[in-house]
């Protein structure tokens, strides 16, 4: 679990075949100098895919920039990732004018996994941001309606099942490997 952190040669796209993508990439990099890190931002080899590494406290500004400058309204989803020392939130969007899918991502440190929520800018993220908080323990600060959404009511407070180091302390993953019905008195 080390090599995925850095951008490998499989990601980078050859410039000739991806002219549109590179044009947008350069424009964004020029406009957002300082907010977007060059490390971790690239044009993917798959057609029409861009990835941007954003500074956690600049996420709102970057989203607002895309919404005004590039007319971004289609919010796709949000996926979390565990990178070891850091936790990562990947926001996936689709730009309907250029027909390019972009991913904005922020890394937050494991001991203080917080960044500011963008649900008030784009209501579409209401559920997925709650999900991220539950499953990864990454807290979008300023979420308008924080509440339980995926896990059972009796789930303990600081256990986040999708983190890589979640060790299943209560043996839940073995529980369902049953071999027959329970005895009548056990129900």
């Amino acid at each position: 679990m080390t090599e995925t952190e850095s951008v490998t040669e499989h990601h980078m796209a050859p410039e000739e075949e991806h002219e549109e993508e590179y044009a947008l990439f350069r424009q964004v990099m020029a406009d957002l100098e300082g907010d977007v890190l060059i490390e971790g931002s690239y044009v993917h080899k798959q057609p029409r895919r861009l990835f941007f590494q954003v500074l956690p406290d600049k996420l709102r500004d970057v989203v607002q920039y895309f919404m005004t400058t590039h007319d971004m309204w289609q919010a796709s989803t949000l996926s979390g990732r565990d990178l070891g020392d850091d936790l990562q939130a990947n926001y996936h969007f689709f730009l309907n004018d250029q027909k390019i899918a972009i991913t904005l991502r922020v890394n937050v440190p494991r001991n203080k996994p917080e960044y500011s929520s963008i649900t008030d800018l784009m209501p579409a993220f209401e559920f997925v941001e709650n999900e991220l908080r539950e499953l990864f323990g990454v807290i979008p600060v300023g979420h308008p309606k924080p509440r339980r959404c995926e896990l059972p009511e009796n789930w303990p407070k600081n256990e986040y099942p999708m983190r890589k180091d979640w060790a299943d302390p209560r043996g839940l993953m073995q529980r369902s490997k049953t071999t027959g019905p329970k005895k009548p008195e056990e129900y």
Partner: peptide, 9 residues
Amino acid sequence: RGSYNVLGG
């Protein structure tokens, strides 16, 4: 089977 949120049958 093997999921943390599933009890089985």
